[in-house]
Amino acid sequence: MISAYFEPFRAAALVEVQYRAAALAGIVTQFAFGWIRMEIFVAVLVKASASAAAQPLALSLRQTTDYIWLGQAFLMLLFTWRVPALREVVRSGALGVELLRPVDCYGFWYAQSLARVLVPCALRAVPMLAICLATGLLHPPVSIEAGLWTAISLAMAFLLSTALAMLVSTAALWLVAGDGIAALVPGFLWSLSGVIVPLAFLPDWLRTVAEALPFAGLMDTPLRLYVGAITLDQAAGPLLRQALWTVALIALGWAAVQRGLRQAEIAGG
């Protein structure tokens, strides 16, 4: 039963592994953007912490640069448009064959999509982390436990990213304004996941909103665990939110696919 889902995952992963030259270009690009982002924050934070009048910072300089580089390494978690649309999967015919077998359509698509998110991201993240750690741009996690929880939270971020992308692309199928809503998601994602501004720097009211939304779980939660901005005894809340959103989006996505398929049958598709 598990192998029925592992097969599409493996097939998609094998395709993605081939794009190593693209990964190289991506690494160079992500480094350059990381450098620019780092310079902006360093410029501000060095001055702010030197000033006597300054209020304490939400993240220290070291925490901020660690946050930025780890975020750059896993930037592709936010590239949700790379997940194949349900239409594509159906058109490729792979699903048609699988529908004959007792395999869940959503599960099949999820396995494929996860590979499309995970593999290119890993191809960039692993060399980037190695270089960043070796050059001291990035410090090791504050403790072994923090590292462990970061890994768990990152794994969840992959599951969440995949589920979010799939829900958005399915909603586009049967909501009138679906395509529009699908277009809006990257906008929120960019502003409220922490990739441009670590959420800790946001004013309280906006941070509360951002942390309640699923986007924080894509990037901010694992990064804050890593830099120790969330201590381990405080970690239960954010991790639980991340897990709940993952489960909720998978459930919603599954229901949306069921409904989408029923409509396709009625339409004779």
């Binding site: 934070l45 000033s51 300054a54 304004a177 809503i181």
Partner: peptide
């Protein structure tokens, strides 16, 4: 979708302004 696409682009690029705003207000006059 045109309206939504325009709105989405405004939202995405507003992240840059968010950064300016947040950094200026968090670090004040320094």
């Amino acid at each position: 979708d045109l309206f939504f696409q325009i709105l989405a682009m405004a939202l995405t690029t507003a992240a840059d302004f968010l950064m300016v705003w947040v950094l200026i207000s968090a670090c004040g006059p320094t």
